[in-house]
């Protein structure tokens, strides 16, 4: 469910920023108005509550996307040629928006954000359990590097969200479909 995902991701990012602020890895902190949780303890509590929503919702999405053929029909194929073609078309404002069909750039970005989501969860588990899940911690290069990977995955997801929300703002007629999960009445039937 798209909007459960919104709640989970906004909560995770906002509380994650507060957790980051307790020991920043870069020379900046997130402003207090932008974070969720008032202080570190509250932020951690929100983070570890919202992660269950993200994981359950994400798992359901991956299972459904694979089983129903959604990934195969909607997100494949993605060829480098099509991506370049659609990207150039978009920048010259010639890319048509077809209801219910993702262009190649969109497909690439959706695969990217799914990958980043999985990366964020795995690196987060590595930060959470460097002893019990030592193999994950080792995979990412230890505790400190896991934190950096986790931060990088968050940054990538934020970049995606920025583009995602910007595109919806440019094409507001897709919003009802995003909210209700259905197709627009005048949209062509699938396939």
């Amino acid at each position: 469910m798209h909007w459960l995902n919104v709640i989970a991701i906004v909560t995770l990012i906002g509380s994650g920023w507060e957790i980051y602020n307790a020991y920043p890895i870069l020379p900046f902190s997130f402003p207090q108005w932008a974070v969720i949780g008032e202080w570190l303890g509250g932020a951690i509590a929100w983070h570890f509550a919202a992660i269950w929503l993200l994981m359950l919702n994400g798992l359901a999405y991956l299972v459904w996307g694979t089983a129903s053929g959604h990934f195969r029909r909607k997100l494949l194929p993605v060829t480098p040629r099509a991506v370049i073609h659609d990207l150039l078309a978009a920048f010259s404002l010639r890319l048509r928006h077809e209801e219910g069909v993702y262009n190649a750039v969109q497909r690439l970005l959706y695969w990217g954000v799914i990958g980043l989501g999985i990366l964020a969860v795995l690196s987060g588990l590595a930060v959470w359990k460097p002893v019990q899940l030592w193999y994950l911690s080792d995979l990412f290069g230890g505790f400190a590097v896991s934190r950096i990977v986790h931060f990088a995955a968050m940054s990538g997801i934020c970049a995606f969200l920025l583009i995602h929300v910007l595109l919806v703002a440019l094409v507001p007629r897709v919003l009802p479909a995003m909210i209700f999960g259905g197709r627009l009445k005048d949209a062509p039937p699938a396939e």
Partner: peptide, 18 residues
Amino acid sequence: SSLDRRAILGRGLILGAA
């Protein structure tokens, strides 16, 4: 020290949710 904090767990405002 967080002894002076009135809220034990900080409450976050999720997109204006109640």
